[in-house]
Design a binder for these strands. Structure first.
Length: 95
DNA sequence: TTGATGATTGTTGAG
DNA sequence: CTCAACAATCATCAA
């Protein structure tokens, strides 16, 4: 999984995907961790943020996972549209 | 049916 | 702009 560099798309409508629980958690920690670490550099934030992320109990991740799940649904919709559009495009192309 | 892959998500900070 | 750790994800395709 050497995903890095410029992410390229492989689908026509590229329904992207959903966010990760980390993204939601990061949103909260971001201002908190940085607030406790004034002038901290990303090199440290990233690690501190991550270790604290797991430092929390699964129940703490709950709200984050819940949001991730909700966000996923968001993606599900675009995914459906993507498939729909794709099918329509294929039909149009075939037609 | 199962496995493997890839692509993507967002943060900060900087050259 | 794009990348880099950090973590999750998890949908999609293929045989």
């Amino acid at each position: 999984m050497a995903r890095k560099g410029t992410r390229k798309k492989k689908d026509p409508n590229a329904p992207k995907r959903s966010l990760s629980a980390y993204m939601f958690f990061a949103n909260e920690q971001r201002d908190i961790v940085r607030a406790e670490n004034p002038g901290i550099a990303f090199g440290q934030i990233g690690k501190i943020l991550g270790e604290k992320w797991k430092a929390l109990d699964i129940k703490n991740r709950g709200p984050y996972e819940a949001k991730a799940l909700t966000d996923k649904k968001r993606y599900e919709l675009e995914k459906a549209e993507y498939l729909k559009t794709k099918a329509a495009a294929a039909a149009a192309a075939a037609e």
